[in-house]
Design a protein around this nucleic acid. Structure first.
Length: 848
RNA sequence: GCCGGCGUGGCGAAAUGGCAGACGCAACGGACUUAAAAUCCGUUUUCGCGAAAGCGGAGUGCGGGUUCGAGUCCCGCCGCCGGCACCA
């Protein structure tokens, strides 16, 4: 026989979940729907949709999802039309790997996991509009992912208008060279033993993380998205967003704008272009370095250095990017035998290759100024290259290795100029002589968009005669072929290449066999939620305008987006990029997708460590629900601390909120002899005492304000104060529960509904559902007390307190303080220098 | 190395520049009970004096500063966490 629960949540939680679901209680009508009310303001509150892993939901999901659910329920009670949807980011490697192991189609495992996630979410009572549910793996959804890809493929970024335009407006000879989706040869991590390409993160010390097989860098044909075209706008348009500054900064740093100059160096018949942020140090450039993969290396290398260069390049090519950057303690490199001419002074300087210069940034070549750059200085020291001072540091610092701003020296026409002016003058000189120009550079690279996987969106592209072209929109969705063998091919060809019939598009054309990365589906899902059943368009115009439109002064988009920081620079940057392309092409009405972003903090195990299976500190939400109920789980996760803060789990804390909910229950009911819960006899239609009224109105005020500011922990604390106040009240005004249950409903909706309905059996004013009531109002007049306690301080130290009427004049308060015995004692023998009076708060007597 | 964020009781935390520690956990004491659990009531930053009510001092990582008044604002350290990392 199971132990009796302090309140009977197992009897009613699932009953209410079913009722909400069946009655469509949280359906949000779209413009055009019969029950749509244009007078209601809209509110779009969105969760980062989960990857439905085999592990099921974890408490971290529940934290963010509860926060948004409280806000969604609160806004509904405030009269908003609330869009609060949920879906599945269901393409991904785990499902595919499981398929390789078992031969089971990834769709089967994915559907099973989705069913489990859906059941778990519904078991927590989240008020999602389930009629809008989507999955990125559903052909009805990824049809439009592929459609957006076609838009990217069919457009280019026009620098003159600073936006994307249809490729037809491009007047150059080779449209393929400017498309937002393009094909390029990219070096990737190829593992011959595993027969597959690996991500950088999967390569450790040049070997595969799994199996320890050697990994080599191999150039492969890849689809790329030209996100770099949007670098500046992705920086600039962060400004108007209501996001944490730290996330904005993360994105700005990731995009990595730097200003400087491009400079051309002549080298024999060749020209080496470099990017530098310090054109003012050009006189100090004593050598040059090319990345080992730089295309000019072969042309420049002299015969007597050819062997050494070839050997060095081979050594470097076997390293992954991670090794090249991470393990760089000592500088390595070789001389090519070639010399370049420094355009500013005609000096012949040697050209080296070294792997500290990266092909992927700038031009893949640098001018080395060892006197004023740490890396160049290290390299020059290692290889005994000349070091020439060209910047005089301020206040007598040593010039060798000085990288800050100073004054130009040994620099001809720049001598005597402070660094910023010297930069400007040098750029002007370079432009005048035609050997360089001012230039802005970004760290951001184009987005490698293809994967050699089965379980992803196929590209709507075919190849014919060595050229790619888009298939017609009418052929979408392009679904993966049915296959039973998902293993890699061993040749680097994607698994789809094995479906030869599917690949053969026509006599002359073959389908692209790469698939899109997992990020693709999550780049626009928030748009689909606005109109998820639309078969004609990726989102209906009216629905998009309505839900993504601006609230007041904001620039529009999702009104609140909550999720973890792990997506700060990937998902959130990719989605902004896609959204801007759609905006430029006129398909959406706002330039940014997410107006307000909030990151929930990580929940640690009770040992203060990150939750992990190996540590054994993982908390399963299902266990918490079966022992304490869904309302306790929700309430605890909100009571732990501020939403955005990292905080450890505590089962004792769960018990604490559970006890609180039981106390709420007992405000309304008590157990009779037969063990049945009956309406508490203390409940009566009586007036509030002055103190009770104050607590009630203060609670309405505080809970409302705290929900608006997402300070759920303090809102709950205030409701605890409320309950403490009424627990001992006899008679207990029924009105206290009418108010409390409304306030509590967004937090603990099951309990609120159950109590609301049961009390309605005896008392008036409990009609309908608690979750569909209007939010209660408060009256300031109950909050002000007639008498206030005034603190008396002497030199800032509390000495006494007096109770006076609220309306006591400033002068009277001052007099009261000076006449006070304690104050006089403390100021005895001193002279009063000043008296500070803060009406309603304190009087501070300053004495010397 | 660079860039962010955070440091408050035994623990999670609260505090528009105005009585630090609300609310909860834990602990302790009491009521109820044959007993326990549950529940209800109370105590709990710390040091000194006091039998007690109480009185006095110290206290928000460390050191300075601004202010009548600083957990809160400013400067400099220390520690922890996160991100980036040869980006020219």
């Amino acid at each position: 026989m199971s132990q009796r629960k302090p309140y009977p949540f197992p009897e009613f939680e699932s009953r209410w979940q079913k009722r909400w679901l069946e009655s469509g209680a949280f359906r949000a009508p779209n413009p055009g729907d019969a029950d749509f009310d244009p007078a209601r303001p809209k509110f779009y509150v969105l969760d980062m949709f989960p990857y439905p892993s085999g592990e099921g939901l974890h408490v971290g999901h529940v934290e963010g999802y509860t926060a948004t659910d409280i806000l969604a329920r609160y806004k509904r009670m405030r009269g908003f039309n609330v869009l609060h949807p949920m879906g599945w980011d269901a393409f991904g490697l785990p499902a595919e790997q499981f398929a390789i192991k078992t031969g089971q189609h990834p769709r089967v495992t994915t559907e099973r996991n989705v069913a489990r996630f859906r059941e778990q979410l519904q078991g927590i009572g989240f008020s999602y509009d389930w009629s809008r549910e989507i999955s990125t793996t559903d052909p009805g959804y990824f049809k439009w992912t592929q459609w957006i890809f076609l838009k990217l493929y069919g457009s280019w970024f026009n620098p003159a208008t600073n936006k994307a335009e249809p490729i037809e407006t491009y007047t150059g000879d080779d449209p393929d060279s400017v498309r937002l989706a393009y094909v390029a040869e990219m070096p990737v991590n190829w593992c011959p033993a595993l027969g597959t390409v690996l991500a950088n993160e999967e390569v450790v010390d040049g070997k595969s993380e799994v199996g320890g097989f050697p990994v080599e860098r191999r150039p492969m044909r890849q689809w790329m998205l030209r996100i770099t075209a949007y670098a500046q706008r992705l920086i600039d348009e962060l400004d108007g967003l209501d996001w944490p500054e730290s996330i904005k900064l993360l994105q700005r740093n990731w995009i990595g704008r730097s200003e400087g100059a491009m400079v051309k160096f002549a080298a024999g018949g060749n020209e080496i272009e470099v990017f530098t942020t310090r054109p003012d140090t050009l006189f100090g450039a004593t050598y040059m370095v090319l990345a080992p993969e730089h295309p000019l290396v072969d042309a420049l290398t002299t015969p007597e250095h050819a062997d050494a260069v070839a050997e060095y390049r081979k050594k470097v090519s076997s390293k992954s990017d991670l090794e090249r950057t991470d393990l760089a303690k000592e500088k390595t490199g070789v001389f090519t035998g070639a010399y370049a001419v420094n355009p500013v002074n005609g000096t012949k300087i040697p050209v080296w290759i070294a792997d500290y210069v990266l092909m992927g940034y700038g031009t893949g070549a640098i001018m080395a100024v060892p006197a004023h750059d740490e890396r160049d200085f290290e390299f020059a020291t290692a290889f005994d290259l000349p070091v020439v001072q060209v910047v005089q540091p301020p206040d007598g610092q040593a010039w060798r290795g000085f990288t800050g701003d100073g004054v130009a020296v040994n620099s001809g026409f720049l001598d005597g100029l402070p660094t910023p002016e010297a930069k400007a003058k040098m750029i002007a000189w370079l432009e005048e002589k035609g050997v360089g120009a001012g230039r802005v550079n970004y760290k951001l690279r184009d987005w490698l968009f293809s994967r050699q996987r089965y379980w992803g969106e196929p590209f709507p592209i075919v190849w014919e005669g060595g050229r790619h072209r888009a298939i017609d929109e009418s052929e979408l969705p392009l679904v993966q072929p049915e296959m039973s063998d998902f293993k890699p091919t061993g040749t680097g060809e994607p698994p789809l290449a094995k479906a030869t019939e599917w690949v053969r598009y026509s006599e002359a054309a073959l389908r692209e066999t790469n698939t899109m990365p997992q990020w693709a589906g999550s780049c626009w899902y928030y748009l689909r939620f606005c109109d998820s059943q639309n078969g004609e368009r990726f989102v209906g115009e009216a629905a998009e305008n309505y839900w993504m439109g601006a609230l007041s002064a904001a620039q529009g988009g999702v009104d609140l987006y909550v999720g973890g920081t792990e997506h700060a620079v990937l998902h959130l940057l990719y989605a902004r990029f896609w959204h801007k392309v759609l905006f430029d092409l006129g398909h959406v009405s706002t330039a940014e997708p997410f107006q307000r972003l909030v990151n929930q903090g990580i929940i640690l195990g009770s040992d203060g460590q990150k939750m992990s299976k190996s540590r054994g500190n993982v908390v399963n939400p299902d266990d918490v629900i079966s022992e304490y109920g869904a309302d306790s789980l929700r309430l605890y996760e909100m009571f732990m601390g501020p939403l955005e803060q990292m905080k450890p789990w505590s089962m004792k804390g769960v018990e604490g909120v559970f006890r609180f909910l039981a106390r709420v229950w007992r405000l309304g009911f008590e157990e009779n002899q037969e063990g049945e819960w009956v309406i508490a006899p203390a409940l009566a239609e009586t007036e509030f005492s002055a103190k009770q009224a104050r607590v009630v109105h203060a609670t309405i005020k505080k809970v409302g304000e705290d929900v608006e500011s997402l300070s759920f922990n303090t809102a709950i604390a205030q409701m605890m104060i409320f309950v403490n106040e009424f627990t001992s009240a006899d008679p207990r005004p029924v009105e206290s529960l009418r108010v409390l249950l409304k306030l509590l409903s967004p937090f603990a909706p099951h309990l609120a509904e159950e109590m609301w309905t049961r009390l309605g059996g005896k008392f008036a004013g409990f009609d309908g559902l608690a979750s569909q009531q209007g939010w209660p109002g408060y009256d300031e007049k109950f909050l002000v007390e007639d008498e206030v306690e005034i603190l008396l301080q002497v030199n800032g130290k509390p000495r006494d307190r007096v109770t006076v009427s609220k309306s006591t004049a400033k002068e009277d308060l001052e007099r009261l303080a000076l006449e006070n015995a304690k104050v006089r004692e403390m100021t005895d023998g001193k002279s009063i220098a000043k008296v500070i009076v803060v009406p309603g708060k304190l009087v501070n007597v300053v004495a010397k």
